[in-house]
C-alpha cells in the first residue's frame, strides 16, 4: 500500500513539473513575440529620426512644397489635413453617433435591424481604397465636387462612419441595464433615460472612439490619392471647395522623388505626422482613464 502511494506521488510530481515547464515555454514564446514587435517599432522610429531630425525646423510649418529641398515645407499639407479633419468630423460625428444611438436605443429588434448591424460591422473591414473609388465616382464625378476638400471629407467620413457607429454602440451597451431600470422605475420616458443617463455616461467612451476614428482619418492616404488629392498645392486652402493635399500624401510625394534631401524632408514629415497621431491617441487614453465611469 505504501509503495503504491509513493509511486502515485512520484507520477504526480513529474506531471506537475512538466505542466509548469509547458507554461514557461509558452511564456518565453510570448515574450519574444512582444520583443520582436517592439524591436521593429524602435528600428523604424530610430531610422526615421536619424533621417528626419536634421530637416525638422519651423520652415516645415511655414513653407509651401518646393522643388528646392531647403525651401520646401508642409504648410499646405498641414492646413489640408486640419481642414480635412474638421470637415470629416463635422460630417461623420453627427451621422455616426446618431446611427449608433438609433441602433442601440430605438431600433426595433428585427431582421432588418440585424441586417444593418452586420453590414455596418462589415463596412469597418472594407479596404480604404474602395472608399476612395466610391468617393471618386460619387462625390468627385457624379456630384461634380471635383478634387476638393469637401469631396475628400465626404469620402473620409464614409470611411470612419462604421468605426464611430460601432464604438458608439459599444459605449452605449456598456451602461448597465440596472441604471436604465432605475430611471424607468422613477417614471421616466425612454427619451429621458437616454438623454440624462445612457448618453451622459457613455459620452466619454464615444468621444474616445471619435478621436481614434479621426486619427485614422488623418493617417489615411489611399482613398485621397484615389480621389486625386495627389497634387502640388502652393497656396492656403480657403474653404471646403478648394483643392488640397494632406500630410501623408506630401510625405508620399517626397519619398517618390529621387533626391535624397527630399527623403530627409519626408522623414521629418513622418515625425510630425507621428507626433499628431500619438498625441491624439494619448488624448483618447487620457479621456478614457479620467472620465470613464467604473460600474
Amino acid at each position: 500500500m505504501s509503495t503504491l502511494t509513493a509511486l502515485r506521488d512520484v507520477t504526480f510530481e513529474r506531471n506537475l513539473s512538466l505542466r509548469k515547464l509547458k507554461g514557461k515555454i509558452f511564456e518565453i514564446i510570448a515574450f519574444f513575440a512582444i520583443l520582436l514587435g517592439i524591436a521593429m517599432l524602435l528600428t523604424l522610429l530610430i531610422d526615421v529620426f536619424l533621417d528626419g531630425l536634421p530637416w525638422l525646423s519651423t520652415k516645415l510649418f511655414t513653407e509651401f512644397p518646393s522643388r528646392f529641398p531647403d525651401r520646401a515645407g508642409l504648410r499646405s499639407a498641414l492646413q489640408g489635413s486640419l481642414w480635412l479633419m474638421v470637415l470629416t468630423a463635422a460630417l461623420a460625428i453627427p451621422i455616426g453617433v446618431g446611427a449608433g444611438i438609433y441602433l442601440e436605443e430605438f431600433a426595433p429588434q428585427n431582421r432588418i435591424t440585424r441586417f444593418i448591424e452586420i453590414n455596418v460591422a462589415n463596412l469597418a473591414g472594407v479596404p480604404s481604397i474602395i472608399y476612395g473609388l466610391l468617393g471618386l465616382g460619387l462625390f468627385v464625378r457624379q456630384l461634380g465636387l471635383g478634387r476638393t476638400l469637401i469631396a475628400g471629407a465626404m469620402t473620409m467620413a464614409l470611411l470612419v462612419l462604421p468605426i464611430i457607429i460601432v464604438t458608439t454602440r459599444e459605449a452605449i451597451r456598456a451602461v448597465p441595464q440596472s441604471i436604465r431600470q432605475a430611471a424607468l422605475a422613477l417614471g421616466a420616458t425612454d427619451w429621458e433615460v437616454s438623454r440624462d443617463h445612457v448618453l451622459v455616461y457613455s459620452a466619454p467612451a464615444i468621444l474616445t472612439g471619435i478621436i481614434l476614428a479621426m486619427s485614422r482619418a488623418i493617417g489615411e492616404t489611399a482613398p485621397l490619392i484615389t480621389i486625386g488629392a495627389l497634387t502640388y498645392i502652393a497656396f492656403d486652402p480657403k474653404g471646403p471647395f478648394d483643392i488640397f493635399t494632406v500630410l501623408p500624401i506630401q510625405i508620399f510625394n517626397w519619398i517618390s522623388l529621387p533626391q535624397s534631401d527630399f527623403h530627409g524632408l519626408a522623414a521629418a514629415g513622418i515625425i510630425i505626422l507621428l507626433a499628431v497621431l500619438l498625441s491624439m491617441n494619448a488624448l483618447a487614453i487620457w479621456l478614457r482613464n479620467r472620465l470613464l465611469i467604473r460600474w
Binding site: P176, S178, I179, Q181, A182, A183, A185, L186, H197, Y201, I293, W295
Partner: peptide
C-alpha cells in the same frame, strides 16, 4: 416606485 436587489444609484 421600485427598489432593486442590487443598489443602483446613478453615477
Amino acid at each position: 416606485g421600485m427598489v432593486f436587489q442590487k443598489p443602483n444609484p446613478f453615477p
